[in-house]
């Protein structure tokens, strides 16, 4: 049945070359853990992406209950954790995934660094990777505030003070982030929410696309 459905679509739109372009390519021997077990280090990038997919999915579902408002944020998180089926699992995925994604990202970065895989002609992809790293840190920073508990509040307080230390534009930068020069409150929370679920993910998807297109274009770096 599935085969027939596929054939029906393929007949009309000729999708096979499209997905073959994306999915069908040689895996060189030196990156295949079946030949050299130590090649598992090449999995870190893919694992980072896998965790990102989990983050996106669980995040989408969390917003079905979460409210970015200082009166209701904590209550809604408490409600979804304690009253909604699997709420602990879904928030747990997002909570722990946020840390795992940073760990995976660092492992991936270290692999590329120590293998020298960032060298010419792949410097551009290294730079894109660093930007992705910054985006991830931004996602971690903005997401941390959203439960609106004491830890979140004071961590953000400190983070904003750090932003304020930037020379010349520090005060403006802090106000831009917090929505108010002095208060960490209603405007901060909505801003952080918007940045966390719209702006940074959009930037992330764009950069990931560039990252993946470059790796397909340039191929994987050769063996050591």
């Amino acid at each position: 049945m599935l085969q027939k459905l596929y054939d029906w679509i393929d007949d009309r739109v000729d999708v096979t070359p499209i997905w073959r372009d994306i999915a069908d390519h040689e895996v060189p021997e030196h990156v295949n853990p079946a030949y050299h077990f130590s090649a598992f280090v090449y999995c870190f990038g893919g694992l980072t992406f896998f965790i990102v997919v989990i983050q996106v999915l669980s995040g989408m579902f969390l917003t079905m209950y979460y409210v970015p408002d200082i009166e209701n944020a904590w209550e809604s998180v408490y409600y979804l954790q304690s009253q909604v089926a699997h709420g602990q699992i879904v928030r747990g995925m997002h909570h722990w995934g946020a840390s795992v994604v940073i760990v995976m990202l660092l492992l991936h970065t270290m692999r590329v660094f120590f293998q020298g895989a960032y060298k010419k002609p792949r410097e551009l992809n290294w730079m894109v990777g660093v930007l992705i790293f910054f985006i991830m840190l931004g996602l971690g920073f903005t997401g941390y505030l959203l439960p609106w508990d004491n830890k979140a509040y004071f961590a953000t307080q400190v983070g904003l003070e750090i932003a304020e230390q930037v020379p010349f534009i520090g005060v403006q930068l802090k106000t831009l982030l917090a929505g108010d020069p002095t208060i960490v409150g209603a405007q901060t929370l909505t801003r952080f929410f918007a940045i966390h679920v719209f702006f940074l993910p959009a930037a992330l998807f764009g950069l990931l696309a560039v990252h993946f297109i470059l790796i397909r274009k340039q191929g994987i770096a050769g063996p050591l």
Binding site: L57, A85, H86, I89, V90
Partner: peptide, 10 residues
């Protein structure tokens, strides 16, 4: 494993 908890939640 990823989808089922999310869907049940939704």
């Amino acid at each position: 494993g990823v989808l089922i908890p999310n869907l049940r939640f939704a």
